[in-house]
Design a protein around this nucleic acid. Structure first.
Lengths: 352, 352
DNA sequence: TTTGGCACTCTCTCCGCTTGAGTGCTAAAC
DNA sequence: GTTTAGCACTCAAGCGGAGAGAGTGCCAAA
């Protein structure tokens, strides 16, 4: 029904809605009929515009903060604007260059992602998000073990996509340097190309063999391998530039600032949200109440998947007040995610 | 001269100063003679107290925000309070328990420190700081190399104090798994117990030998070793609980909030500050303009060194508005730093 | 030396007023 | 049948003055 109505809007109403959203994004103030009439794009008097605006309000695209104020777009107004009215403003070549350069700094993926998140925050003047989920679902290229202390071993896993994770685990057995080298070789040789999940299943199957053979070395290998795949490999979420919200007029008062900061600190919710977005291809825009998270403080999120097409790696995007320049944010996030993906595919290619 | 004057304060002036500082810390408001008279600790009329307060103001311990307001302690007033008047309030057993438990979670040092910083922030309701400098000056226990991609190697260094750092470096040569194992053994065997700096010097000396012998394997070893010791191992600085300053009345307005957040984001300054503090043993309190950093926003820092006595590891502390409960913060930071040190010595012992 | 009294200063808050932007409705004009 | 002008109405925000309240310094008396 909503979509049906969407297209029923006559051209004039569309123009008016577009103009109101754009002006409100630019100024942050409610837009009145007089301002709209004087902007030059309509040959109509304030009175006529008032009629159109009243219709748009009835349809749920606009709302008034109070009786004698101008109109402000609703979530639904923004949604319609983004879907049907927005003319996205392409990036300047300087911005493209900044992104290209920013992404090609270094080759360590953690650094690149961290950098990307800071860059995004700077270019957008919003809070930059870069999310890299656990590598559970990705294939493993190698797995090495290093003694850190008697019963503590560092596991270093290199994914087929070039991602490196490491983790220190406590072990039940003590291992010599020789043993660790052997185990590293064995596990990498035996299980390369499989996902962590698959490796776990195989290791568990191996347990039976070991029971039959009473092979001590095999027992230690299995034990270490299982500990390694079961270790909690956290997802990384870079939230950069939180101070940018201090500029936004909608968060001028201390109370809403506080709420907003605390909300941004609750990373679990964000992670959850980004994880669901990971399923979708293409640019995603979540407005206000469309997600549980953004509901709290009238946030919007513009995000897109990155990584090779065969194996998406994570999400990159921005989060900011509902009133943001979608026309600029959309190409920005889009371009950055593509640049990141390209970079990752390159790395994968040169090092695979 | 300052210290001379400090001790010249007569007992009554000391009592008045103490009471003013304490009340101001509790309320955040300027303290007037009337309030002070009514608090019950003095058998004096407001007029008499006014005389004492005028003296204290002349000596530079107090100041007035404006003519008809009460008095507020100056930096100097706080300093005198902390040095001579403060009765530090010992931790409750619940707090002690919280710290003991918080510190003993996990054994990975990064996790412990991160946890400690969050815990400190929670218990103090200030911003928690935990600083771990680069391990340049510490002895190395082992050094391992793992292939991540053709020309990218992960270096894992375990310090004698149990700290583990890892870093991915780009290399000039290509290495096989065998070679990396050999090099790891060689370098660990040859250089364990030395600092990174010493290792670098020895490696450079080895270069001459290699030139004479034209030993390819030695050449590769030296090259990799030098790349490894030269890699930039960043210091870690955990700044936790920045949102706690949102509660503080002194940062109620958006402008000073903004300044404060941006100041906290400039970690280099903080690192510099903490690095100089690292030289001193015992609890350190920096008030307001006493440090370049805190000058900006009337910050104070309460911090203490942690790590084994033989090898101090870093600094742990809190940063907050000048008007903070030093009497509580001091024992808190002190206890946490001792708990951390104990934990680290334990780990070192069980794993050394 | 302490205290009460007094004049003075300065901030903060409340109140009422005005201004201005904006609306909806109605009736006339195109 | 639109479009527009006019009008009455509403509400937020800004301004200024009055008054309260907290605090001071100084002086003279206890």
């Amino acid at each position: 029904m909503a979509t049906r109505q969407d297209f029923d809007l006559d051209p004039r109403a569309r123009d008016v809605l577009r103009e109101i959203v754009m002006q409100h994004i630019a100024s942050g103030e409610p837009i009145g009929s007089r301002t709209l009439s004087k902007c030059g794009k309509f040959q109509l008097s304030p009175a006529s515009l008032r009629n159109v605006m009243a219709d748009l309000e009835e349809l749920g695209f606009l709302t008034q903060p109070h009786t004698s104020a101008g109109r402000v777009p609703t979530d639904r107004g923004y949604r319609f604007f983004i879907n049907h009215l927005m003319k996205s403003r392409p990036l300047s070549s300087r911005e493209q260059q900044a992104i290209d350069e920013g992404v090609s700094v270094g080759s360590e993926i953690d650094d690149v992602l961290h950098h990307a998140s800071a860059l995004l925050s700077k270019l957008s003047d919003q809070v930059g998000l870069v999310f890299m989920p656990t590598l559970m679902q990705f294939a493993v290229r190698s797995m090495d073990f290093i003694a850190v202390a008697e019963s503590r071993i560092m596991v270093v896993i290199v994914g087929a996509n070039g991602v490196v994770v490491n983790k220190i685990i406590e072990t039940r057995f003590l291992f010599t340097r020789d043993e660790l080298e052997k185990i590293s070789r064995y596990i990498t040789g035996e299980f390369a190309g499989l996902t962590l999940d698959a490796i776990r299943r195989r290791l568990i199957r191996l347990t039976e063999q070991e029971r039959a053979q009473h092979d001590e070395m095999l027992q230690k290998t299995i034990s270490l391998g299982i500990d390694a795949v079961n270790a909690p490999y956290e997802h990384d979420l870079y939230v950069e530039g939180a101070s940018s919200i201090l500029n936004k007029p909608e968060y001028a008062d201390a109370a809403s600032l506080r709420k907003t900061f605390l909300a941004l600190q609750e990373k679990e919710k964000l992670v959850e949200l980004l994880e669901t977005c990971l399923a979708e291809e293409g640019l995603q825009i979540l407005i206000g109440a469309e997600s549980d998270f953004t509901q709290i403080n009238n946030f919007s999120i513009v995000a897109r998947r990155y990584g090779s097409t065969s194996a998406p790696l994570g999400m990159v995007g921005i989060i900011g007040p509902m009133r943001m320049e979608y026309a600029r944010m959309a190409p920005l996030v889009d371009y950055l995610s593509r640049a990141l993906s390209r970079k990752i595919e390159e790395e994968e290619h040169t090092n695979g």
